[in-house]
Computed example of a mutant assay.
Amino acid sequence: MYPPSLCFSPFTGTLSISESNRRIDHLMAAFNLTPSDPSTFILMGIPGLEAAHIWISIPFSTFYTISLLGNFTLLFIVGKEQTLHKPMYLLLSMLALTDIATPTFVVPKALCIFWFNLKGITAVGCLTQMFFLHMVSVMHSGTLVTMAFDRYIAICNPLRYATILSSARLAKLGLVGLIRAILFILPLPLLISQQPFCANRIIPHTQCEYIAVVKMVCGDITVTRIYAMVLMFVINGFDLTLIALSYGLIIRAVLRISSENGHQKALNTCTAHICVMLTYYIPGLFSNLTNRFGQGITPHVHIILADLYLLIPPMLNPIIYGVRTKELRDKVVKSTCRR
């Protein structure tokens, strides 16, 4: 699922430009903020909850720490244990890398806002954060597609599994996913950087999300809007179609298995991947729907939902695979007992 910020207005028209400017002017007056450097933006954190920033930082830092601990542990175990150098665990390592990168592009800056009131960010830094955040999201989605293909091969063509999904082929698929993400996302910050920014450079958010940055552009952003809209439908449509196709073929293969035990065994191999997809796509869909249809919801709720969308899945993914995958769980327990 594409990051919620890219599925929000300007496509949906949730906030008009004039209304957005009025809110920004109000924030400027309320906090007496005037950027001394015209190339500096101001990230407000969570407007309306400034007094609770310290308390909000507790779950932020906790989720982030658990996410880093879980994903680095997974990478360490897979890298150390030769028996785990299999396609499934190599793909899981790719997923862990995206799960480390996603919150890392957001949480450290958010904590600087919460703890030290360091709200300034350069225009280049803001566009860079936006680029990497969306790029990693596209890579994450591509990894989930590859994992769905992995499960299809494991169930529908198990005898050729190791041949089809060799380490070299997985490395090529990972490289293709990286190139795809860069080529698709890079035009966004490049297009925005060519436009003049307005005088008010306050971003009422903890991150430089796409729509917040676009609202500060005073030039014509028609091309940027069209490109972002097409990009959203192309990536979501393509990736979700491939995942649905893979699982359609898996279900057909499972139904052909005569024994109930065979059904259960085949489906168990997909459980962890299905759970990971649900934790990724459902919160993103929920956040998008609240942005589109939740005009009565206060802005800080939208901001918190967008942040949780970037924090919760990376924290849960290594836990899900650790619980649902016996081989990985045994290796983690064995390594822990040694220490």
Rank of each mutant, 00 (worst) to 15 (best):
L328R: 02
I320H: 07
S93Y: 03
P3L: 10
F149A: 15
P283N: 03
M229L: 12
V323C: 11
D150S: 07
T98P: 03
L91T: 08
S18A: 15
P196N: 04
R339K: 15
G79E: 07
S5V: 00
L27S: 08
E50N: 07
P318F: 00
P59R: 14
L278A: 14
G294H: 08
D220I: 04
V333F: 14
L310C: 13
G48Y: 02
F197V: 14
A101E: 11
N291I: 03
M147D: 01
I66G: 04
S16R: 06
L43A: 01
R160D: 07
I257C: 08
V333D: 06
V136F: 07
L190G: 03
G120I: 01
E260V: 11
T241P: 00
A30E: 14
T224C: 08
C112N: 13
V230I: 12
I192W: 06
C126P: 00
H26A: 13
H300S: 10
V223P: 00
S287E: 06
L240F: 09
F197G: 03
P299T: 03
L285S: 01
A171Q: 14
K109N: 10
N261L: 11
L111E: 11
C337R: 14
Y247M: 04
E260A: 08
H140G: 06
G262N: 04
F114T: 03
N32R: 15
P196G: 03
L90H: 10
M130Y: 01
H300Q: 12
I243A: 00
S166P: 01
A51T: 11
I250D: 00
C270Y: 01
L328W: 01
L159G: 08
L188E: 02
L68M: 14
F286C: 11
K109I: 10
P38I: 01
S36E: 13
S137L: 07
I121T: 09
T122M: 02
S287A: 15
L173E: 04
S166K: 13
G322H: 05
L278V: 14
V214L: 15
D239R: 02
G70L: 09
N236M: 01
L267M: 12
G120A: 15
S137Q: 12
C112H: 10
T271W: 01
E209C: 15
T40K: 12
G48Q: 02
T271A: 12
F105H: 04
V230T: 07
N291M: 10
A171V: 11
L6Q: 10
Y309L: 08
I250L: 05
I113H: 04
I100Y: 04
S39A: 15
V78T: 07
P158N: 13
H302L: 08
L92R: 04
L267D: 01
L240Q: 09
C126K: 00
E50M: 06
S61Q: 11
G296S: 12
A154E: 10
A181E: 02
I56S: 01
L308G: 00
D307T: 10
S9W: 03
A154P: 00
N268S: 12
L278N: 06
I179K: 04
T65H: 11
G70M: 10
Y161D: 05
L33G: 02
H85Q: 15
G322M: 07
C198S: 13
L267N: 06
L178V: 13
